[in-house]
Nucleic acid binder design. Sequence first.
RNA 1: GGGCGCGUAGCUCAGCGGGAGAGCACUACGUUGACAUCGUAGGGGUCGCUGGUUCAAUCCCAGCCGCGCCCACCA
Length: 887
Amino acid sequence: MLEKTYSPADVEGRLYERWEGSGAFASDVSSNAVPYTIMMPPPNVTGSLHMGHALTFTVQDILIRYFRMTGRDTLWQPGTDHAGIATQMVVERNLAAEGIDRRDIGRQAFIDKVWDWKEHSGGTIVNQLRQLGASPDWERERFTMDDGLSAAVRKVFVKLYREGLIYRDKRLVNWDPKLMTAISDLEVEAREIDGNLWHFRYPLADHPDRFVVVATTRPETMLGDTGIAVHPDDARYRDLVGQFAVLPLVGRRIPIVADEYADPEQGSGAVKMTPAHDFNDFEVGRRHDLEMINIMDAHAQLNDEVPEKYRGMDRFEARKAVVADMEAAGLLEKVEPHRHTVPHGDRGGVPLEPWLTDQWYCDAATLARPAIEAVETGKTVFVPKSWEKTYFEWMRNIQPWCISRQLWWGHQIPAWYGPDGEVFVAETEEEAASAAQAHYGKPVDLVRDDDVLDTWFSSALWPFSTLGWPERTEHLQRYYPGDVLVTGFDIIFFWVARMMMMGLHFMKDAPFSTVYIHALVRDAKGQKMSKSKNNVIDPLDLTSKYGTDALRFTLTAMAAQGRDIKLAEGRVEGYRNFATKIWNAARFCEMNGCVADPSFDPTRCGETVNRWIVGEVAKTAETVATAIEAYKFNEAAAALYQFFWGTFCDWYLEFTKPILQTPEGGSEHPAAAETRAATAWALNRALHLLHPVMPYITEELWANFGEEADKLLMSRAWPELPASIIDADATAEMDWVIRLISEVRSIRSEMNVPLGAQIPLMLTGAADASADRAKRYREIILRLARLSSIEVGDAAPAGAVQSVLDEATLVLPIADVIDIAQERARLTKEVAKADGEIAKIDKKLSNQGFLAKAPEAVVEENRERRAEEEERRDRLAAALSRLEQAG
RNA sequence: GGGCGCGUAGCUCAGCGGGAGAGCACUACGUUGACAUCGUAGGGGUCGCUGGUUCAAUCCCAGCCGCGCCCACCA
């Protein structure tokens, strides 16, 4: 006997172990089945499960479980990402707590510490994935710093270098002075800051009494100015082009150049040029051959290129000093408050400095070309399609990708330098050494590049590196390319685009045919959840409170395309109740002896209710399958919920009661055996349909009631039911019966008739002449509605509707049981509303155009609606007039 | 500045060219046999505003108002 309520905590762990232990998640490379592959976006090894993970992994798990049930050989490739900066920061923080700085212990010792940390604490996220019920092929779990994946990284780096697609360059980068590393454009976050615009006067070299006014939001950078730019057409400055100004506080002679970058409308029309500390100035500086003076060190403190007074100052300290000194010199024209965006590092959180350094770059524009084409030609499609525009926009304007990072944790760049700085790029130190020996004609000492690669470099290889590339493994041949990539839009650029580029370059094929972009889960304020903002909601709190299945169902029901998800706990609670409902429906079956009957043939039911329910199951199976395959997960969830609760429990199980439950002293109903088998069959099919979304409760119930309880539900086939199982007559009849009962209930309640018992309709017999019966039911309803006199006699058929009529006789004179004034007001309102409806329909029907063009069925439908509405109005009006008389 | 999306019940959200929906909350009634984590019935919405297309618009189109996100070098 099942417990009275479902207790997730008692079954989830046990079932998960049984699944994983039985090998039910494993792919089968030797299978004949068609493969279905999803590459799991590897979560950061430092991560812990947040709501975004819960959504993305639930969606992926639904797809995997569904396709596994349909017989595909599924590979859901799991793993974690080494997450360069994030992981290094975590370990550094831990060391700092012990008073250790990583520089004290040195690079190798630090890396060992990180590996230690990974061994002991890095498993959090994958264990949380298990709690979520995710079913990837754990035996194939990978880590982006694995030997195999690291080898793939080196191979890719060397190959791209030799093809000229990776190169070293001295350019401005976004420098994070806190983390002391370069970061890519994508890691820059623009924040609005209330600052000032300072207007400075720069005297002309040959006319010390004349000034050029320039404005800046970063006064300290003036110490690195090497020019002033004005627009070539700007009449105000035409005579100054070619002359020099004297940089105040420094005394440097700086040229005034004409460049179209200077906007005459903006400020004074003259712009100071700091080529080493501003991206625009850098470009102008290149065009005019301006000097590039780097005035800051890696901490963003001023270096020896500035007058002694400012050396060693922090950039913000220097800002104050420069402004004060300019003002003292009478060269500060004015200060305006100015709100502007300042680039910040998305992890470090401090303002970034454009800084001139040597870095490694990847020629993204060249790699992007085939990746653009793959989407243009439909080789890879985005769902929803609108994201393709975003993808194109970025890919067509892509900048060189800065791939080097000044960190210790990551894939160290496979480049070695000879004594004269000559670079040797090779997969191993030995190869580099022999290349160097060939170059110099003798063995030399090589120094390896300190930098590591951007984390996303290794992630970009994930779809093939995890399958064994560069070896031509069986897995690589079978599972590449994958079917669908499931992710949030926030990493389209970081990851999706780069996988496309690398996949096409190295595998000559796009890594997946579909990219499904789901909504982002946001916090209550609609803010994006991220580790660094510390606003993550722990989904495990919800799973422990309501059960994993309830959370999964909630996310599924909310996974509609096009809107971000702000999770409301009430929804989770509601779907927990749904789980309880499922559980209790199963209990009902258990109590009534509804066990699976192998001889039951759903296409050959005798009873109308049974013929009907098997058809409803078939329709639901079709709806759910179609929805999942179209990535319309919310539609799948809605169909499941509606079927199980609204159809199976509310109606079918109620209809079976008079059949299954033998009256006192009576004998069993002749249809009981078939109904028991049908009930068990329908329940078991429903468990299949629910399983991809709610794996735990369905598996647990299957273990108790399934046809083959020893076999896991999750490895069972998805129910494919023949269309012939849907019996149109039975469906039509049941539709009418349900409407009939609903209407009787409504009238009863409307008239405030205190009747408690359920209507014990006994629906047996074949669905013969169902149309006639339906018509009869309807007449009865209308007669009931008139209330004054229930004429049982002439409309009383045998059997099926007798009990309805019996109840109808209990309807009491309304004046006896209701508050007259209140009811009068209500009825008046209702009558008016009905009149309004009728007028609306009349208008539509009288419209010539409508009659001419509308489909006949629609016209007919409107006529029927009008008739119904009229009946309703009459009924209400009659009740109202009787009320007046009684009052 | 460019792009994308959203505005539907008190709240969180589906849906959609022909009778406005779900969950939660609310009201009334109902508990000795599946389920009170329940059942039955009910209240509550000019589907952001204004125009247009159409026989018909919550839905399509345009404009506007509000909100959010992404991208972008404005000193």
